[in-house]
Design a protein around this nucleic acid. Structure first.
Length: 561
RNA sequence: GCGCCCAUAGCUCAACCGGAUAGAGCAACGGCCUUCUAAGCCGUAGGUUGCAGGUUCAAGUCCUGCUGGGCGUGCCA
């Protein structure tokens, strides 16, 4: 619909250019928007106002000229010029009802498009180090990151989900020492407990499993415990595998799967870290000071230079970060999106600066970032800070166990990433109308219920009959619902383009609201078979769109509640 | 101190490269179940979009300066 109107306006604009009403050399992007207010028709454009200045004409006169030059179209019932120069379009009722046929025809693929043209996109998210169970912040990253992936897939991209982690650094050594301490029966209160050791109860489980010689299988590794409490290397390998498996189970429970697990250590093994360092040094972008090697990132927009090799000869995390992103680029990802917590935002400028310093033709501003702000968890209005298992934070698993996967995913993805999120456990748990997840799922279940009823009464949905009588969908509530349905593809396109899944959540809530309103106002199971089937078709179309939208958020669409 | 992010109804939030009268839900108040799931619907009330300027035909949206909050500002990741 939007495309149709855009095309019509394009023709009209060309006509005006030929008539000399509008200068040839201006070429505005024609913007057609769905209206907020029904009184303004179904779609509107501000084209006349955009043209007013360059054409040196009054916007309302231009609007008149544009309307006069508009080709005939069966899709448009009426146009009108309003306000300072908007052109409003009223869709023909028959054309509007055809959305129902289009949705049923397209099914699961309704709302999807091919604008991505198969372009390879890599999304890196979660990327938690294997030092403990995933926490709520990782959960937010997982919900947003995976939803972005689903949106990109829905818009025709070839998506790779990647998880990057460090299995060899100082934190991992710390983990190994903590497990070893537990294996030797130490307690965080004991004097010999490692400094800054991990204190959570889960460390006890790792130690027990190691001593028992168990074998753990994670998505990217399999390790058997050696049972020797003095073999720190064996403990390290085992602990990493154990916690990787733990995280995999968390992710699986959350409905998130990765294509690639990328190890920071592999960058050292493959010589990529050294090669990156050499390239930066050879390029003349480094200098020695205070016994360390610095990269002059200030030449590339950073506010201070950064240490890349410490005075003890080890590299900082910064250098492998650059090497890792160079590797992404060399793997052919022209588009890379990094979803991470905003507490790491300082790496954005740094990594980009490092990549520029490599002078390999990587565009300025690559890669893209989506940063999410902190999550605060509350219960009974009080902040929840601790989980028994992890010791110092609320785990993702706690939330999934307590409020369920659907509600957890919905709540973590339904808010803009860059605003702080309060996760209200009581609200997410409540099976009532204050919980948007249930509100949306209930709409889906209600359609299913009507369909069951039709079936039970021997009045199965008759597709052909329905398609012939869609024009009988004429009540205000039905029209509003169809209008909402027709906007779904734009919502998907916009959410995918902007990497903002919350638009889908918002839309689904509005769609559910329109449906419930319609459901209460318009009885489906009426005597007249043609009207009944047309309404069943509208219900089916609504169900389809809710299902498609929930899928983009990784939330299920139950048939009954 | 400096950098990034945020500030919208009592509360939690939305608002599509700037567009018409800023929208939902909760909480409050008043209605609707002998009728397809009341986990629902209808109605009422609630706003100087933190403050002050600026750009524009048009600003919650862009720019500048304030105020308040979060995060960062390690040779940690």
């Amino acid at each position: 619909m939007k495309e149709t109107i855009t095309a019509l306006l394009g023709d009209a604009l060309n006509t005006l250019k030929q008539q000399g009403e509008v200068p040839d050399d201006i070429d505005p992007t024609i913007k057609v928007e769905a209206t907020r207010d029904k009184a303004h028709g179904d779609y509107a454009t501000n084209l006349a106002m955009m043209l007013a200045k360059p054409a040196g004409k009054n916007p309302r006169d231009l609007a008149n000229a544009l309307v006069a030059a508009l080709p005939e179209s069966a899709a448009i019932r009426q146009t009108e010029i309003a306000g300072p120069g908007f052109i409003n379009f009223f869709a023909a009722t028959d054309a509007m009802a055809q959305i129902v046929a289009r949705i049923l025809d397209a099914g699961d693929s309704f709302g999807r498009n091919l604008t991505g043209a198969g372009e390879k996109v890599q999304v890196e998210f979660v990327s938690a180090n294997p030092t403990g169970p995933l926490h709520v912040g990782h959960g937010r990253g997982a919900a947003i990151g995976d939803s972005i992936c689903r949106l990109l897939e829905a818009t025709g991209h070839d998506v790779t989900r990647e998880f990057y982690y460090n299995d060899a650094g100082a934190q991992i050594t710390n983990l190994a020492r903590s497990v070893q301490a537990r294996a030797k029966g130490l307690d965080p209160e004991d004097d010999d407990w490692p400094e800054d050791g991990y204190r959570g109860d889960y460390i006890i489980d790792v130690a027990k499993s190691y001593l028992a010689g168990e074998t753990v299988h994670a998505d990217d590794r399999h390790v058997t415990g050696k049972t020797d409490p003095d073999d720190i290397d064996a403990i390290r390998d085992f602990a990493v595998a154990y916690l990787r498996r733990e995280q995999d189970l968390d992710l699986k429970a959350f409905g998130v799967e990765f294509d690639v697990y990328f190890l920071e250590s592999s960058l050292y093994e493959d010589g990529n870290v050294e090669a990156t360092a050499k390239r930066l040094i050879d390029g003349g972008h480094t200098y020695e000071a205070d016994g360390a090697l610095w990269l002059r990132t200030t030449d590339f927009g950073d506010d201070k230079d950064r240490v890349m090799r410490k005075s003890d000869g080890e590299y900082t995390y910064f250098l492998p970060d650059v090497a890792y992103h160079l590797d992404k680029w060399q793997r052919g990802f022209k588009q890379v999106i990094n979803e991470q917590g905003a507490d790491h935002h300082s790496t954005v400028t740094r990594v980009r600066a490092g990549l520029q310093a490599l002078e390999t033709g990587i565009p300025d501003g690559w890669p893209d970032y989506v940063l999410h702000q902190m999550v605060l968890v509350t219960r009974s209005g009080v902040e929840v800070k601790l989980s028994k298992r992890a010791g110092s934070y609320v785990t993702l698993r706690d939330l999934i166990d307590e409020v369920g996967r659907d509600a957890t995913r919905y709540f973590l993805a339904a808010r803009r990433a860059d605003s702080q999120l309060t996760f209200d456990i009581d609200l997410a748990r409540s099976q009532s109308n204050d919980n948007p997840v249930y509100y949306i799922q209930y709409a889906h279940a209600r359609v299913c219920s009507v369909l069951r009823k039709a079936e039970n009464e021997g009045q199965r949905f008759d597709h052909d009959l329905a398609m012939d009588h869609l024009s009988q969908l004429t009540t205000d509530q039905e029209k509003a619902l169809m209008n909402r349905l027709s906007r779904y593809p734009e919502v998907v396109a916009h959410a995918a383009r902007s990497h903002e899944p919350q638009h889908v959540a918002q839309y689904l809530q509005e769609l559910a609201s329109d449906f419930h309103t319609c459901y209460n106002a318009v009885k489906v199971m009426v005597e007249d078979p043609s009207l009944r089937n047309a309404r069943l078709a509208l219900g089916l179309a609504t169900r389809q769109v809710i299902r498609n939208g929930l899928d983009l958020l990784g939330v299920s669409a139950p048939e009954e509640m």
